Computed example of a mutant assay.
Amino acid sequence: MTSQEMTFLIIGGLAGGFINGLAGFGTSLFALGFFLTVVPAVEAVAITVAISVVSGLQGLWIVRHSLTQNPRRLARFLFPAILGIPLGVASLKQVDVSVLKYLIAFFLILYGGFFTFRRNLPKIDRPTPFIDCTIGFCAGILGGAASLSGALPTMWCSMRAWPKYETRAVLQPFNVTVLALTALVLAWGGAYHQRTLLQLCIAMPSAILAAQVGIIVFRRLTDDIFRRLLIAICLISGTVLLLREIL
Rank of each mutant, 00 (worst) to 15 (best):
L110R: 03
L171C: 02
L142H: 03
G150E: 06
F115G: 11
D125S: 14
A161G: 02
R168H: 03
V170F: 06
P127S: 01
I109T: 07
P122C: 07
G136S: 02
T116F: 09
I109G: 05
S98H: 14
T182L: 14
K123H: 11
R126P: 00
A161D: 15
L152S: 04
D125I: 01
Q194S: 14
G189L: 04
A139F: 06
P127Q: 02
R195T: 13
T154P: 03
N120D: 15
L179K: 12
L121G: 09
Q194V: 13
I141M: 11
R118L: 12
L108D: 01
D125T: 07
L198C: 02
L100I: 08
P163W: 08
G189I: 07
R118D: 09
C157I: 15
F137I: 09
Y111K: 03
T182M: 12
T177D: 01
L152D: 00
A139N: 03
F107M: 07
T128C: 03
A183W: 14
F115N: 07
A187Q: 13
R168V: 04
L184I: 15
C201D: 10
G144S: 06
Q194C: 01
V185I: 11
Q172H: 02
V178K: 05
A169R: 11
L110S: 12
A139S: 15
T154Q: 04
L197C: 11
W188H: 15
N175Q: 10
V176R: 00
P153D: 05
Q199E: 12
N175D: 05
L152M: 12
L142N: 00
A105L: 08
